[in-house]
Design a protein around this nucleic acid. Structure first.
Length: 314
RNA sequence: CGCGGGGUGGAGCAGUCUGGUAGCUCGUUAGGCUCAUAACCUAAAGGUCAACGGUUCAAAUCCGUUCCCCGCAA
């Protein structure tokens, strides 16, 4: 089949690789335009573009899909199928209807739950025990199309957004290939999503990563796990932003009276222990503004922290 | 030329404003204590203070330039 691949995020890489080594022909790859990223003025391309170039696949980077020029360009390839995974933009109906068969999307959740841009992160933040990958036929509404294949996976306690994304990326690649085979052989079934069970996972904002120390330790840990990578979870210490990379629940029972939430309640050999709304948690890896990421042990070597100091105040 | 923090023995930091003997918490090595220990005590090794240039009797510290790391913003 002639396929046009839409993808931008890291999660789409295994699927893209799987497609490249399948019997299908990738006519062209559509990915987000190079962004002028920050500190200096470095231009950065999506990982998908880098991989496409390495395989000499044509790359197309329209700023918007609403342009007629985009429609004409894609039409010219005469594609059988569009494969979309973590592209980063809604595909207009006109575009979706270009391929002869239809457009397929791989989504990292058990649809109809967690529709939207950040399903992996929200599943972790909400403390879900399982998630998965759904392969759907695309319709006009974001992530609302009928399901072709769906595969469940357990969320491990030690999983964070990065490790889970990795697992789901590989799973998505496998499921996608299977789905393509069944589509080619025309022996697939479509299962409509149950609209009553729809939930949403909107794109995360930086602010979503701010830790609320009033919450129970478990919930804070879930936030840290869910925000790993981007946007990262953070709090404040002595007026500076303090990012927390690795932490675990130390004690999930009630805190003794009089202890302020966010207070340093002690230290162990390798971690800083903080009181929360319910229970305590142990920070193992962190980063203060302007410094490198380091272990709690390293941090404590150079910073005199005291029991009773408060986290979370600017 | 977007804003800001930083580069000091192996790690993390102080010292820089107000130039004048290289400091702290660890780690490493050796010895001691101990039934024993990653605990405790003692000692030692380990630095061209990012680089180059300037000012000065004297520069980690003041001035100029460059390189590198990081946070914000996107």
């Amino acid at each position: 089949m002639n396929i046009i691949f839409f993808g931008s995020g890291k999660i789409s890489i295994p699927a893209f690789e799987a497609l490249l080594s399948s019997r299908n022909k990738i006519c062209c790859v559509v990915t987000q335009p190079d962004a002028k990223k920050g500190r200096g003025l470095a231009e950065s391309m999506t990982p998908v573009k880098a991989l496409a170039q390495a395989h000499s696949v044509e790359v197309f980077q329209p700023a918007t899909l609403k342009d007629d020029f985009v429609f004409e360009t894609l039409k010219k390839y005469n594609p059988d199928l569009f494969v979309v995974i973590a592209y980063g933009q809604l595909l207009p109906e006109k575009i979706l209807n270009i391929p002869k068969i239809f457009s397929v999307n791989a989504h990292a959740s058990l649809l109809p739950e967690y529709r939207g841009a950040a399903p992996i992160n929200w599943a972790l933040i909400n403390g879900e025990k399982k998630t998965g990958v759904s392969i759907i036929k695309m319709v006009k509404v974001m992530d609302a199309g009928p399901i072709i294949r769906q595969k469940e996976i357990a969320i491990m306690l030690q999983d964070n957004a990065l490790t889970l994304e990795n697992k789901l990326a590989n799973l998505a690649a496998e499921e996608l290939i299977q789905a393509l085979i069944s589509i080619e052989q025309k022996n697939y079934k479509l299962k409509e999503q149950d609209e009553a069970k729809v939930s949403f996972a909107p794109k995360l904002k930086k602010e979503d990563g701010r830790i609320d120390w009033e919450k129970p330790a478990e919930q804070i840990i879930n936030l840290i796990r869910g925000c790993a990578g981007w946007p990262g979870s953070f709090t404040y210490y002595k007026g500076k932003i303090l990012k927390i990379y690795q932490a675990s629940v130390r004690d999930s029972t009630d805190v003794q009276g009089g202890v302020n939430k966010g207070q340093i309640s002690g230290f162990s050999e390798d971690s800083i222990i903080i009181a929360t709304g319910r229970g305590t948690l142990a920070i193992q890896e962190l980063q203060i503004e302007g410094k490198k990421r380091m272990s709690a042990r390293e941090f404590l070597s150079g910073h005199q922290m005291r029991v009773g100091e408060i986290f979370g105040k600017k």
